[in-house]
Design a protein around this nucleic acid. Sequence first.
DNA 1: CTGTTAGCGCATTCAC
DNA 2: GTGAATGCGCTAACAG
Lengths: 334, 334
Amino acid sequence: MSSITIKQLAYELNLSAATVSRALSDSYEISAATKQKVWDLAKKLNYEPNPSASTLRSHKSKTLAVIVPEIANNFFSQAINGIEEVSRQHGYHVLIYQTHDNSETEAAFIKSLLSGRVDGVLISVSSETGNSNHFADLNKNIPVVFFDRALEDIDAVKITTNDYESAYLATEHLIECGCNKIGYLFALNNLTAGKKRLSGYKDALLSNNIAYNENLVVICGKEESQNYSQIKDLLITNRPDGIISSIEELVLPCYAICRELNINIPDDLKIVSFSNLKTAPFLNPSLTTITQPAFEIGETAATLILKLLNNKQVDTGEDVVLKSALIKRGSTAV
Amino acid sequence: MSSITIKQLAYELNLSAATVSRALSDSYEISAATKQKVWDLAKKLNYEPNPSASTLRSHKSKTLAVIVPEIANNFFSQAINGIEEVSRQHGYHVLIYQTHDNSETEAAFIKSLLSGRVDGVLISVSSETGNSNHFADLNKNIPVVFFDRALEDIDAVKITTNDYESAYLATEHLIECGCNKIGYLFALNNLTAGKKRLSGYKDALLSNNIAYNENLVVICGKEESQNYSQIKDLLITNRPDGIISSIEELVLPCYAICRELNINIPDDLKIVSFSNLKTAPFLNPSLTTITQPAFEIGETAATLILKLLNNKQVDTGEDVVLKSALIKRGSTAV
DNA sequence: CTGTTAGCGCATTCAC
DNA sequence: GTGAATGCGCTAACAG
């Protein structure tokens, strides 16, 4: 430890601990001269306040918790980047927790955060079905901001993207490219985002006089092998000429299966995916992506929770919706 | 807050706070019956110990800090994944800090961690040149483990990969593919990892009777635009038939420049890159990657620091070296 | 402007 | 086995 305390500073300067404390927090009641003396000595001795003591006394930890399904994910890591950025600018520390889409783990994290460890929580919820009781306790006790993956029935601040429009746009893009048998890889099926994306797909089909065919929709979950065989089934049985992947993780099996089945991308099959892999279109011009503004979502979420922490004057009624972008390059580019 | 304290539990049970505290920590001096009563009530009331109070008293925060240049980076996000995993299993919390390769930011973080906020630090250092005095203070006060990006002159536990051999292997792979004019994109030039990678490249050339040509080595830094123009220069002036990229970030500009200059990959130019973008070879079979075991590095780093925290019996003399893998697919595959 | 006093919640003496 | 007392380092109320 740095081990040097306020008391020691006070002793060295013949002041009381209270005065030193006030000087360090730049209180108006302290003379400029005293402040300067305190600051000088603090700097000289490399004084660092003990955060536990400070938190215990002040009930402010200057720490935020971020709960995400997965850190090693292009969207979430970019979002965390934005969160860390804003937090640091405001002197906040950031704790990271990943649920691996397990709602029990999620509940356990939340329970452990009910102890004053953090001032607020930023969360993108697990897509596993499961009751969401654990959010109720949390939301009552400390400010919470949901980003990207939220639950429908939670009354809290939410930051999302235009999922419906994005999927609609993606589908229309494929139709414009000449596809009329478009498969849909349906993930996040019990989250708002997942449902909205599917709706966008459906509506785009209908608007373009293409019948919605349930057989072209594959419900994907956590089981990679199951996803693989289901997608393979789709490709073999229905031979779609286009595919929309509602999450990035499903693109890789798609490519692998196509190679296996000797399906040529994009000649035989065009793919559009929700994805934050920024290099994708460069590495493979045949892939069109819908890219969420992940960094900005993180920034916005952090900014919002800091506001909640400071003046509690945030309109929680309206959700914040940021816009995703359809990024086309190479052969399917406009 | 949960707001329920040891004192309240004690009051409800007609016990003293001390007894409750001991029961909660499963002390041997407490009778089984009492322990059970305490545990039951604690669970019933959703008691969560106040971490600040506990830390203040015990000098153990059960928290680790992770300092990385960038979170939104395939290697680091996967490493953090491993760190979080192990930490959670042992009841530790994980704080995240990113330096953006700025050593001043790095120094500031380290300084702020000297206050008992964390029990240990896991760090991958900034590649910016700068004095490393700030590490000395840190290392003296709390356990530190360096992973992947370490400084040469620091005496601490380090976890790295076989950078030299990897670059050697990568270079030989290109030679086997028929390249004899291999460019090298030199990043991390003042870190051990960067230097070793370059050495591997050089030695592989020499072993294969290819003269080392300084003009084929581009020193890359933080400035993307500068990297871009330098790499473009290399491609125009020297027309290499192979390129080794010592970090993933430089692959994207490579591809962009090649498109611009109408250079065909991999016919005219074969690229091998250090990269943890696992989907890369699938998205683009022409790219061969050297992939570090990022998750395992994280796991190892966390495991090691937890050992340091518990018994301090870790051999700091020898560094831990994990093996990277050369992943070839598609056209340049074996 | 500055000092005195008190207490945040917990864990650890020392008693009994 | 259990309780009483103490203090970790800091901040806030209350004096002066």
